[in-house]
């Protein structure tokens, strides 16, 4: 009797010890793997930042340890970027294009998403999925015919070509995204507003829109960041540096033949990449909710 109890306790503690050992091991593996992934993902960006502040004499000596500052770090490259290149123009163009695209997107997407959730009954949902599928038509399939269309419209080599074309990917995605938000707004509050003496459009304006403000903000952020990300159309449509946006301008203008202004190049990339990443990251969960196609509820 006593022995069985003893052995039972023994195996019990043994098991507990093993469990604890496993748990500690599990944690260690977890941290190692997490760190590994983070390093892999962030490496190019860390490298950008490191490079940005290097002096020429440091950077261009292959024997130097590239992971440290052998010469003191310098702001010189950022000054150069800001004062002697078209970078400020790229930034302005990028912002201009993005802001106008956001405005167009909102103006088109809000009524469309509303109609698909509220006014079109059963086939609204199917049509919504169809519109979302349009998002999957890649720029690389369309950029050649669109180059022709843009030329026909007299917009070749103009940033307005981008303003015109970017909504083709922001509209499908954001319509889908906003439909999710509108579905969550109780019908009754807009019906109440209509009872209270407002027309349907006024009811939307005064109840549905204020209540779905987070959704609209999400649409703003995503159409903004998607515009900032775009590369293919920008590359195909625009050739003069005064019309270029950052993602194309940096790549095509700051590399002159074989001459690379590496530090300024990296500064240019990092200066845009991080703010965009922060903005995007903040709204990512909503973005993902759109991507999961309702295969996941939540």
């Amino acid at each position: 009797m006593a022995t069985t109890t003893a052995s039972a306790t023994e195996t019990h503690t043994e098991q507990a010890g093993r469990n604890r050992g496993q748990r500690v091991l599990g944690r260690v593996v977890l941290y190692v793997v997490a760190t590994g992934f983070a390093l892999f993902a962030a490496l190019p960006f860390a490298w950008m930042v490191l490079t940005t502040f290097k002096a020429d004499s440091d950077l261009y000596r292959p024997a130097n340890n590239p992971f440290v500052y052998n010469d003191p770090p310098t702001w010189h490259n950022i000054n150069l970027l800001w004062n002697d290149t078209s970078y400020p123009t790229f930034i302005l163009n990028t912002l201009l294009v993005a802001v106008v695209v956001v405005l167009i997107t909102i103006a088109v997407v809000v009524p469309a998403a509303y109609a698909l959730t509220r006014l079109t009954g059963r086939w609204g949902e199917s049509l919504g999925i169809l519109i979302f599928l349009v998002y999957l038509v890649p720029p690389t399939l369309l950029f050649i015919p669109l180059t022709g269309v843009v030329a026909d419209l007299g917009l070749q080599n103009s940033k307005w070509a981008m303003v015109l074309v970017y909504p083709t990917f922001t509209i499908p995605f954001c319509t889908w995204l906003l439909m999710g938000f509108f579905r969550g707004v109780p019908w009754e509050i807009e019906e109440q507003a209509m009872i209270d003496g407002y027309s349907r459009i006024q009811a939307i304006w005064k109840t549905v829109l204020p209540v779905s403000l987070p959704g609209i903000l999400t649409v703003v952020i995503f159409s903004f960041t998607l515009s900032l990300h775009e590369f293919v159309y920008a590359l195909a449509f625009v050739q003069s540096s005064d019309q270029k946006t950052v993602s194309v301008g940096v790549f095509t203008e700051l590399i002159r033949g074989d001459v690379f202004f590496w530090q300024s190049l990296m500064a240019a990339a990092a200066l845009v990449a991080f703010p965009v990443a922060l903005l995007y990251n903040y709204f990512l969960d909503r973005f993902i909710a759109g991507f999961t196609l309702g295969a996941v509820k939540g």
Partner: peptide
């Protein structure tokens, strides 16, 4: 950090690799 490659403009991220 893990999301950076997706949240930053592709062209700029790839420039980092290009230089690396």
């Amino acid at each position: 950090l893990v999301l950076l490659p997706w949240t930053t403009p592709v062209a700029l991220g790839v420039l980092g690799w290009f230089w690396m």
